[in-house]
């Protein structure tokens, strides 16, 4: 394996709230290789977005990174100063947000918003920027790009706005793209096109992609590797095909069994007992899934094995499902 585009080690994040300290992430370890697409999946509240925000350095002021590093090239993103980080964001790492209409500036034309990024990060001269912005709109499949560049976000459909977001994110040829639920709220037909555009660009430029989603079906189709999160822990990370063929963590198996597929029946789908544990508790169990788990043993109270950030497989469970299951 080539050197990873991003290596996250022992990342822990806490939020100070009126109800106490919320331990949102605890020793999160993972990596994404150059040219690789990984999907981070899990229920809401599992820490998917907090992980992305921590890497981007855009956490809420109430949050505090208590341990860990996020290494991009020679730089630890969690320890760099504000100015270096501002230069890296947009140039080296870019992010696409859920709900593009609110992420774009509502009172500026979309062409100007793309040009801003070009001027700031891509060494484009002010006279050349508008033309380059139109070219970028064309590469994300917007028809009549010259006219659309002059439009305001409210004049474009949700799918179009998300294409503009992608054009902005990809303007400076980043080496890492973080896409946080990029197609939630879009139609399936638009979703397929948006995901195609991201995949094509990743393939063409060798860009690494971290793709955050709650849609297991979409992750299965689009990602090389899947990272499963539950209550601020990474519980399992494996290549997509292996993970779906034989999930090893009970939570992964439960998620797959709850997701409706193209041939499943309502009576086949399984529910997941219980909910996420209260992350404000002073003493959280070593395994945060133990309270919902049907395979819990006495030994589950012991600390979980440490996950190696550089490995392509990870499993945080004392009593995993057997390695081979008849498919």
């Amino acid at each position: 394996m080539a050197s990873p585009a991003l290596l996250v080690e022992d990342l822990s994040v806490e939020f100070r709230t009126r109800g106490g300290i919320v331990k949102a992430l605890e020793r999160v370890n993972f990596h994404v290789a150059k040219g690789e697409t990984i999907a981070v999946v899990g229920e809401s509240g599992s820490g998917k977005s907090v992980t992305a925000y921590a890497v981007m350095g855009i956490l809420d002021p109430a949050a505090r990174v208590t341990s860990g590093r996020a290494v991009l090239g020679a730089l630890d993103l969690l320890k760099t100063d504000r100015h270096t980080l501002a230069a890296v964001r947009g140039r080296e790492i870019a992010m696409i947000f859920q709900n593009p209409r609110t992420a774009l500036n509502p009172i500026r034309r979309v062409g100007d918003q793309i040009a801003d990024v070009l001027l700031r990060h891509a060494n484009v001269t002010p006279s050349a920027a508008p033309k380059k912005a139109v070219e970028l709109l064309e590469t994300v499949g917007i028809t009549d790009p010259a006219r659309r560049a002059k439009a305001y976000p409210f004049e474009l459909s949700g799918g179009m706005c998300q294409r503009v977001m992608i054009a902005i994110a990809l303007a400076a040829n980043p080496s890492l793209l973080i896409a946080d639920e990029p197609t939630t709220g879009l139609d399936v037909t638009t979703q397929a096109i948006i995901m195609d555009i991201i995949a094509e660009r990743a393939k063409a430029t060798g860009m690494a992609t971290i793709f955050i989603t709650h849609d297991l079906g979409l992750a299965a189709e689009r990602a090389d590797r899947i990272v499963v999160m539950h209550a601020g822990h990474i519980v399992e990370a494996r290549p997509t095909r292996d993970l779906f063929a034989a999930p090893r963590h009970p939570y992964t198996a439960a998620l797959i069994a709850a997701t409706p597929g193209p041939t499943s029946q309502l009576s086949d789908l399984r529910t997941i007992a219980g909910g996420l544990p209260d992350l404000r508790a002073a003493e959280l169990p070593a395994c945060r899934y133990a309270g919902r788990c049907a395979r819990r043993l006495e030994g589950c109270a012991a600390p979980l094995p440490r996950v190696d950030a550089a490995a392509s497989d990870a499993l945080a469970c004392h009593n995993p499902l057997p390695q081979e299951r008849a498919a």
Partner: peptide, 11 residues
């Protein structure tokens, strides 16, 4: 809703 809750509601 999350998938785990979705199944319960559909049932």
């Amino acid at each position: 809703l999350d998938v785990s809750v979705q199944v319960v509601i559909l049932q």
